[in-house]
Design a protein around this nucleic acid. Structure first.
Lengths: 145, 145
DNA sequence: TATTGTTATACTCTATAACTATA
DNA sequence: TATAGTTATAGAGTATAACAATA
């Protein structure tokens, strides 16, 4: 098989992201959480009082799609909301939510370790800086859309 | 903003893949091609006589989803099909398709260059081997699904 | 005027199941 | 029995537009 895409970083990027995202969503299945829901809980936990729009901006989730996600987390009792001003609500993780965050941190940690150990040891230190460099232009797209 | 996902390779991977895939699909808009359609044309061009199932296996596209994609490329006259045996058809790029492949190669080349130049020069040589290492486990998922 | 949050909706991508015809 | 190709369909994930309430 002659592979014309083997040296295309975009193709490899898509393949890697798809593989590891699928694996992570399977790992979160026992917690009944999607990757995005788990990420939202982590972001709220580390940024108590954050608004759902700010979370969406950070995780690349549209305002319109944040509404049902936050609603679901509220209904499960994992997060709570309080008024910041008339239009903005701050979010925080409840005690029950904090137990769940503990489980998420374990899953995320395992997942992180597995990705890194797939990379040969001599390149492992470059993973985070290299991938970080490839997402730095994110704002440009957000402007356009 | 306290970012609990900044050092998570999976999160960075998803962000990078999404950004560059969105950009690539915009670059292919003038050719009226999706990223997958353009990739299929490239794979056929470099592997004349390949079957659509083999393409799907390589590009991670289900048999069921390959059918309409190939049908569309046939209807546009960019590829042609010939019987290999009673159930398999080999695919090839037509002369008209080859002109299109030339444009795709230009777009893919520009895109490849842009991704690489987003990475600091001292890490650039690691991009392909590092990303390749992160997709090597692809088969495992294919077994499960 | 700009922003938060919401609803409704559409579109793309991906997944599953069932079927035929062939090997 | 296994594989190639097809159809139909369902489910995520994502995108757009419009609206009310508030800054």
């Amino acid at each position: 098989m002659n592979n014309p895409l083997a040296d295309h970083p975009g193709f490899l990027l898509r393949g890697a992201a798809r593989y590891w995202t699928t694996l992570l969503s399977r790992r979160l299945l026992p917690l009944n959480l999607s990757v995005t829901e788990a990420s939202i809980l982590m972001v709220i936990h580390h940024n108590p009082g954050i608004s759902q729009v700010a979370i969406g901006r950070f995780l690349n989730v549209q305002r319109a799609n944040m509404a049902p996600l936050v609603h679901s987390l509220l209904q499960h009792g994992w997060i709570h909301a309080f008024k910041v001003d008339g239009r903005t609500q701050g979010l925080g993780v409840t005690d029950e939510g904090k137990r769940l965050v503990g489980h998420i941190e374990t899953v995320f940690g395992d997942h992180r370790r597995d990705i890194l150990s797939a990379v040969p040891e001599d390149m492992r230190a470059f993973v985070i800086p290299l991938l970080s460099a490839m997402v730095t232009h994110e704002e440009i797209l957000n402007q356009v859309s």
